[in-house]
Simulated scan of single mutants.
Amino acid sequence: MTDSHPRRRFLKITAVGAGVAGLAGASLAGANRAAAVTSGLTALTHPGVLHSRADLDRMRSKVAAGAEPWLSGYNVFRSDRFSSSSYVMAGGRATVTRDPAGSPGNTELWYDCNAAYQNALMWYITRDTAHATKALQIIRSWTDALRVINGKDAELAAGIYGAKLAAAVEIMHYTGPAGSWSASELAATVAMFKNVFVPRIDIYGDGGYGLMGLKGMTQIAVACNDLRLFDDAYNAFMTHSCCGLTKLIRSGTGQCCESGRDQAHTQLILGSLAEICQTGWVQGLDMFGASGSLLLSGYEYTAKYNLGGTVPYDAAFGRCNWHWDSVSARGSFRNIYEIAYNHYVRRAGRSAPYTEQVARRLRPEGDGTQCDHPGFGTLLFTL
Rank of each mutant, 00 (worst) to 15 (best):
residue 9 R to I: 09
residue 383 L to S: 10
residue 353 P to V: 05
residue 324 W to A: 08
residue 173 H to Y: 14
residue 105 G to I: 13
residue 45 T to P: 02
residue 71 L to Y: 02
residue 325 D to P: 14
residue 46 H to I: 05
residue 128 D to Y: 03
residue 355 T to V: 07
residue 207 G to S: 12
residue 363 R to G: 00
residue 80 D to R: 07
residue 362 L to N: 07
residue 153 D to L: 14
residue 356 E to A: 15
residue 247 K to Q: 13
residue 4 S to D: 13
residue 126 T to Y: 01
residue 111 Y to H: 11
residue 100 P to T: 09
residue 87 Y to N: 02
residue 324 W to L: 08
residue 5 H to W: 05
residue 193 F to G: 00
residue 306 N to L: 07
residue 267 Q to K: 00
residue 104 P to W: 03
residue 5 H to L: 11
residue 178 A to Y: 13
residue 2 T to S: 09
residue 7 R to V: 05
residue 164 K to V: 15
residue 156 L to E: 00
residue 217 M to V: 05
residue 22 G to I: 04
residue 257 C to K: 03
residue 86 S to R: 15
residue 267 Q to F: 13
residue 195 N to E: 12
residue 72 S to A: 10
residue 305 Y to M: 06
residue 294 L to G: 06
residue 355 T to P: 06
residue 1 M to D: 11
residue 5 H to M: 11
residue 67 A to R: 07
residue 104 P to M: 11
residue 252 G to K: 07
residue 217 M to F: 02
residue 226 D to T: 11
residue 306 N to P: 08
residue 347 R to C: 11
residue 248 L to V: 04
residue 125 I to C: 04
residue 192 M to H: 01
residue 232 D to M: 08
residue 164 K to H: 07
residue 272 S to Y: 02
residue 89 M to R: 13
residue 316 A to K: 13
residue 5 H to T: 12
residue 2 T to L: 10
residue 232 D to C: 01
residue 120 A to R: 00
residue 15 A to F: 06
residue 259 S to F: 14
residue 62 K to G: 00
residue 155 E to V: 14
residue 313 Y to R: 10
residue 281 W to Q: 08
residue 172 M to F: 10
residue 31 A to W: 01
residue 78 R to E: 09
residue 139 I to E: 06
residue 322 W to Y: 12
residue 139 I to C: 02
residue 199 P to F: 12
residue 263 Q to G: 01
residue 75 N to L: 14
residue 376 F to H: 11
residue 183 A to P: 04
residue 370 Q to V: 14
residue 96 V to Q: 07
residue 114 N to V: 08
residue 372 D to T: 14
residue 28 L to P: 05
residue 13 I to T: 12
residue 98 R to D: 10
residue 228 R to T: 12
residue 6 P to A: 11
residue 55 D to V: 05
residue 280 G to S: 14
residue 227 L to D: 02
residue 136 L to F: 00
residue 282 V to I: 13
residue 253 T to W: 13
residue 115 A to K: 05
residue 166 A to V: 09
residue 101 A to L: 11
residue 129 T to V: 13
residue 232 D to I: 06
residue 219 Q to T: 05
residue 317 F to A: 01
